[in-house]
């Protein structure tokens, strides 16, 4: 409970200290580059494999039921609504959550965060607000790109056993998708990104002294943010259900 209170208080500071001017625009852009652009190859590769494998795994079952032609529809819905956002967020948590936890943890134990404080600079604003904003903005973009690459992987997967044109494949996918499929999926990635950023920063800031503490921060940032992704996903599905969007 004590930990929950501390995380809540740390998160609350984002909306008080974090959004006050003066803004650290240069650092925000730097973090968007590191967190977003540099994560793209990993997200792209995993998304491609995910789309390809999902298609190859689904195909035999659909053939058994004689609905092989529905493969693009099923894969499209699964990727856009659920698998794409969640898998991308988990990959993102592993790469970025641990990186933020270790970086800030290391800064904490080497007194670099204290050095900012004693020079009258709010480390929360410079270190936390920029990183949390960057994760919140970049994860939806990575998810959209990842979904696209995943669908391309799926298209290749379909063409391993049969022949479908890329136009027909994507026409079937987009015909099956609705505004209510895409928008909630993208909105929840904003929350996933916020959770990954805030948990990574919290774990880094609360790192105990020593190198072991830095390792624990990095590890627990990944574990907690992964759990948070599933909890948010569960809440998101309940909310979309209540809103009649499912």
């Amino acid at each position: 409970m004590d930990e929950t209170g501390k995380v809540a208080s740390f998160t609350g500071r984002f909306f008080s200290v974090g959004i006050q001017p003066r803004y650290e625009n240069r650092e925000l852009l730097n973090q968007c580059y590191k967190i977003g652009y540099l994560s793209f190859p990993l997200v792209g590769l995993t998304s491609f494999i995910m789309g390809l494998v999902l298609t190859m795994q689904l195909r035999p079952s659909l053939v058994d039921y004689g609905v092989e032609s529905q493969l693009p529809v099923m894969v499209g819905l699964a990727i856009v609504r659920e698998i794409g956002p969640v898998i991308t967020a988990l990959i993102f948590a592993g790469k970025i959550g641990s990186s933020i936890g270790a970086e800030l943890g290391s800064m904490k134990v080497t007194e670099q965060i204290d050095a900012m404080t004693v020079s009258g600079i709010k480390p929360y604003k410079y270190l936390v607000a920029t990183r949390v904003l960057a994760t919140t903005l970049m994860l939806p973009l990575l998810t959209i790109l990842g979904d696209g690459i995943s669908l391309f992987g799926s298209y290749l997967g379909v063409n391993i056993r049969s022949v479908t044109s890329i136009d027909l494949f994507f026409l079937q996918v987009f015909k099956s998708l609705d505004f209510s499929d895409v928008l909630p999926a993208i909105i929840k990635t904003l929350f996933f990104g916020f959770a990954v950023g805030i948990v990574g920063c919290y774990k880094g800031f609360s790192s105990s002294k020593g190198t072991q503490g830095v390792g624990v921060s990095a590890n627990s940032a990944v574990v907690l943010s992964s759990v948070m992704i599933f909890v948010i996903d569960l809440l998101a599905v309940q909310i979309t259900e209540l809103m009649g969007l499912n």
């Binding site: 080497t110 007194e111 670099q112 204290d114 050095a115 404080t117 004693v118 020079s119 009258g120």
Partner: peptide
């Protein structure tokens, strides 16, 4: 406190330079 801190310098034992 932040305003007052600008009038006080602090040299850390570990130097605490931003690496």
């Amino acid at each position: 406190l932040d305003e007052t801190r600008t009038k006080i310098g602090f040299l850390f034992q570990s130097n605490a330079l931003y690496d």
